[in-house]
Design a protein around this nucleic acid. Structure first.
Lengths: 190, 190
DNA sequence: CAAAAAGTAGACCGAACTGTCTACCTGGCA
DNA sequence: TGCCAGGTAGACAGTTCGGTCTACTTTTTG
């Protein structure tokens, strides 16, 4: 495997599970079985490595999420697919996303509060992208094809629910069943 | 003012705005205008100071939230009051909560991922307390007085929406108008 | 094959961190 | 008046951090 991706994958797993400030460069190179110089050959600083991790996570998460929503034919199915996907993720049944530890971008943003920081910017950008993915899934349904305003409103709502579910699952770690009752979903959408 | 509360207030403001790992003890004592020995007279370690901050923030936030919900007579009014309160907070119109920077407990939990850590425990406990505050407000309404199951379901939903709103407001910092349309609220509750 | 590029191991530097300690000061109270 | 708990200022120790550098080895490539 390419050394660079080897480093990024290792660092991403460590950062995601332990938090970024809690993981030093030395721990990364030890876990990645790589010399320190190799790391600094590929990344000029820890911050740059963090950004690379964010980019990789962003791509991976988006690909996964799109795949979960692609077969939904109605707004209700979009919502249903979304929350089923979240449930799988939270209960550690999605290999490609690793052991659930909340949203990597929310966690990271909490560690880098300065808005102008490139790291914080990537976190913010990720959220916009996810919102667009949900919006796109909704706008592809026959019901909302001609209702961008409605699709926008609903995508925002789903996004808010998603964030809330993830945050709660993160803080109270017990592997929980789906937080959202389907009767509620039906009220919202049907 | 009592030196201890002076230290905690200063530390809380710094931790909340900049993140905990990003703020050193030296910065705290300088901002609090206090000698290092004084700090370590009152707190045996930084972790203990962090816990004290979490406790104070917990009390302060709960008191504020309860006051916001106390006049609501119907479930809809509870929800409405909750989201109005959040809107005020996010737009920095609530002095006692400081400059909005998301949920201090979510942020802090992100910096201390180990579940067994007393710090993480306090974060988790805070979320349970807030959920109970919302539940209590709902159960006091005439509509839900005799429906604990319904009150529980609705409180969870409101909690999820609240967390989602806060997280989104945190990550994309632009001071935003209320994310939740009242028509949606009515669908959910009426 | 030979040169260049990339990787390894780890010593090392300066900075920053938490936490301790000394030496001195101050203000309230017996 | 004299005592003393609690405050101040800051040097200091010990650790850890990010990042650089040297010396050597491996891999790739013209």
């Amino acid at each position: 495997m390419d050394k660079r991706t080897q480093i990024v994958n290792t660092a991403l797993a460590l950062f995601y599970n332990k938090g970024i400030h809690a993981v030093g460069i030395n721990e990364v190179i030890q876990a990645a079985k790589v010399a320190k110089k190799t790391l600094y050959n590929h990344f000029s600083s820890k911050d740059e490595l963090i950004c690379a991790c964010l980019v990789v996570r962003d791509e991976r998460f988006n690909r996964w999420l799109k795949a979960q929503l692609i077969y939904a034919k109605t707004p209700f199915e979009v919502a249903d697919a979304l929350f089923n996907a979240l449930s799988l993720w939270i209960n550690n049944q999605v290999d490609e996303l690793g052991n659930f530890n909340g949203c990597f971008f929310i966690n990271t943003a909490a560690e880098f509060p300065l808005e102008t920081d490139p790291i914080a910017r990537l976190c913010s950008k990720h959220k916009q992208t996810v919102l667009k993915i949900i919006y796109d899934a909704l706008i592809l349904t026959t019901q909302l094809k001609e209702s961008p305003a409605e699709a926008e409103q609903l995508s925002k709502l789903l996004m808010t629910l998603k964030e809330g579910i993830i945050c709660q699952a993160r803080v109270s770690k017990q592997p929980q069943t789906l937080l959202l009752d389907k009767t509620i979903l039906k009220k919202l959408i049907a």
